[in-house]
């Protein structure tokens, strides 16, 4: 049964990664208008990088087919230039009356969040199926 535990670990790691993705998308949307970050600059859009990670080294050492999980490799900042708005009355406007706005595109974040939610759901379904299999195995002992 060790591989099934590995499968659940893999799915759980994906739940974690997708949750992180939703968190990042939410903070991007929340800061879509933040013109002052801790460094005095407007907020920069963040994105996460996912990477494959083997969850069970024991199975792999035996040459068995094991599940591979996923982890958040890093959170990177989007290097796209800030949007420039003409708003002379804004306290952060420059000499020409332009305000640098975060490089966040709200519709894009919404799409990102939908994708993450779907992936989260798929992994939850996978965990349910694995749980059913384990349940069936346990019924042998009755």
């Amino acid at each position: 049964m060790s591989t099934l535990r590995g499968a659940i670990d893999a799915s759980a790691s994906a739940l974690n990664a997708q949750r992180a993705r939703i968190e990042v998308a939410v903070s991007n949307i929340a800061n879509a208008e933040s013109t002052r970050g801790p460094d005095g600059q407007p907020y920069r859009r963040r994105d996460i990088v996912l990477a494959t990670e083997p969850v069970e080294s024991f199975d792999q050492a035996l040459g068995r087919a094991g599940a591979s999980g996923v982890r958040v490799a890093s959170v990177v900042e989007d290097t796209e230039p800030f949007r420039r708005h003409y708003e002379p009355s804004h306290p952060d406007a420059d000499a020409e009356g332009y305000v640098a706005m975060p490089n966040v595109d709200v519709p894009e974040e919404m799409v990102n969040m939908l994708g993450a939610a779907r992936a989260y759901q798929a992994n939850l379904t996978a965990i349910g199926l694995i749980r059913d299999t384990i349940q069936r195995a346990l019924e042998l002992g009755r």
Binding site: A10, L50, V55, S68, A116, A119
Partner: peptide
Amino acid sequence: VQRQSVAAGNLANLD
């Protein structure tokens, strides 16, 4: 079980 594990791994790496 192994098929299911590998499929779970694939699903985990959907993105």
